[in-house]
Amino acid sequence: MKALAALFARELRLANRAGGGGAMGVVFFLILVTIAPFAIGPDLNLLARIGPAILWIAALLSTLLGLDRLFLSDHEDGSLDLLEMADTPLEAVVLVKCLAHWAGTGLPLVLAAPLFGLMLALDGDALWGVTASLAVGTPALTFIGAIGAALTVSLRRGGLLMAILVLPFTVPALIFGVSAASAASGGTVPFLTPFLILCALSLASMALAPFAAAAALRSGG
């Protein structure tokens, strides 16, 4: 347990010192939200209607962008070998690394979402809904992405392949995330239905992805 706490602290410290991964993710998020209206047009009614979808797709891409480094730097400098030799199971190591990664990159996106939602003319309910759905849904994206990151860890240019492998599996989270966000500002579906399914998706991916990712990391060495 102490070892995992040390790992969590190390991951956060590294994220803070090495280039500020979290801040970069938020900037990328902002850029995606900014260019969407250029493609769609500045019609506020339209933007308000599809705003939750824009925010979710932007959050999905921002999450994915930082994930390829999740295991890669540890693989390159040999840390991954030693983590495999530690007493702590590799599955737990993966879990903690993912949680730390989410705290460093996913959480800032969640916090930034209401602000960027204002730019897309979302009203109060929609802002609240999209923030809540991102808060419970982005962990699923991080954990699913971790599987792709682990599978591509030994490849020099694994970033694009990782996106190809991971994106189909994010379809459920995207569907229920956007549904929950849209349902918050009215619609035929009650907010809680998609929201609770989204929670379930996050919990299930948190429970299963560490096993898949750890298996992939072990076979990569």
């Binding site: 599987i147 599978l151 492998l165 599996f169 379809v171 459920p172 998706l201 898949a212």
Partner: peptide
């Protein structure tokens, strides 16, 4: 590993 991840996910994707 990816195939097995898929086999768990395909029903979920279908449902979604």
């Amino acid at each position: 590993i990816l195939t097995l991840v898929g086999v768990v996910n395909i029903p979920i994707i279908k449902f979604s």
